[in-house]
């Protein structure tokens, strides 16, 4: 059985694509045959984050329109054996994504033996975002501890609960997870930032992880390497924890509390 996971948020720039890249890589590293699909038609970026932008020949819309078959369009990831990327099209035609087309692509992926399909949603609540979540079995809602992001996350949760196939057909609802990214424990401690508990209390969705704010994310995207592959990085560890929790393993939360640097550290610096 293929599980379809949508990575969504409503608001842009909160880390959906970073999260899609890392979670799909993490699942593939665990040995699952995984595909990651970019639904951001017109503004594709997953290819850059995954470092395969120069190998894109065909895309999601080509496959939907029958101009290419799925195995021609899927790009094999350079880091993971079991991971394939289906890039978005750069066309400006908003209606390029059809529900039947997306459904067929997902069915075909299932026939090809994919165990997980990760759908990287575009920002907003327009067609692309709705298409990305329509067929989801599980949803990871990415939110920053910041007012506009939290509000938009709540909006997208409402859409999940009304427009997903599972909701429309009255099946078991989409399993929701909350992922908080760009978290700065120091600022939380100082009362300048919503805590992960606050965000969870507001959105009422089970927490799957907290990704700390880090310079490493930019370093990773600069190189086209999903953040989960970085060595000695809190972000990589945090994403590995998220994947483990997704697979029902028990992992305590990390990187959520701030320790004041000791006197030595303050005198001599260092990270």
């Amino acid at each position: 059985m293929t599980r379809v996971i949508v990575i969504t948020s409503g608001k842009g720039g909160v880390g959906k694509t970073t999260t899609s890249a890392s979670i799909s890589s993490g699942l593939a590293l665990r040995g699952f045959k995984t595909a990651v699909i970019d639904f951001d038609v017109g503004l594709r970026n997953l290819d850059l984050i995954m470092g395969c932008e120069r190998r894109v020949v065909y895309d999601l819309v080509n496959v939907i329109n029958g101009e290419a078959n799925l195995s021609q369009a899927l790009i094999k990831d350079k880091h993971c054996e079991n991971l394939f990327i289906l890039p978005a099209s750069q066309t400006r035609d908003k209606d390029a994504l059809t529900e039947e087309g997306v459904e067929k692509v997902l069915k075909d992926l299932s026939h090809m033996g994919f165990e997980y399909v990760v759908c990287d949603s575009p920002a907003g609540i327009e067609r692309g975002a709705v298409m990305a979540l329509t067929f989801a079995d599980e949803a990871i809602v990415v939110s920053n501890p910041e007012v506009s992001s939290v509000r938009d996350s709540d909006r997208i949760l409402g859409i999940l609960q009304s427009k997903s196939r599972r909701a429309i057909e009255g099946r078991e609802p989409v399993k929701e997870h909350l992922l908080i990214t760009r978290y700065a424990p120091k600022r939380v401690e100082e009362g300048e930032m919503l805590s992960y508990k606050d965000v969870q209390e507001l959105l009422r969705v089970p927490l799957i992880g907290v990704i700390p704010e880090s310079d490493d994310v930019l370093q990773a995207s600069n190189q086209g390497t999903p953040a989960i592959h970085l060595k000695d990085s809190d972000v990589a560890t945090a994403y590995q924890d998220v994947v483990a929790r997704f697979l029902d393993e028990d992992r305590p939360l990390r990187f959520v509390s701030y320790e004041k640097p000791g006197i030595l550290k303050r005198l001599f610096g260092g990270k």
């Binding site: 007012v147 009304s162 009362g191 919503l194 805590s195």
Partner: peptide, 23 residues
Amino acid sequence: PKTASVAKERLSLIIAHERTSNR
């Protein structure tokens, strides 16, 4: 008052309001 608690209060009001009207 710390700004984080202001944020939480504002959010809890607006989210509760939008949940009833948007859904």
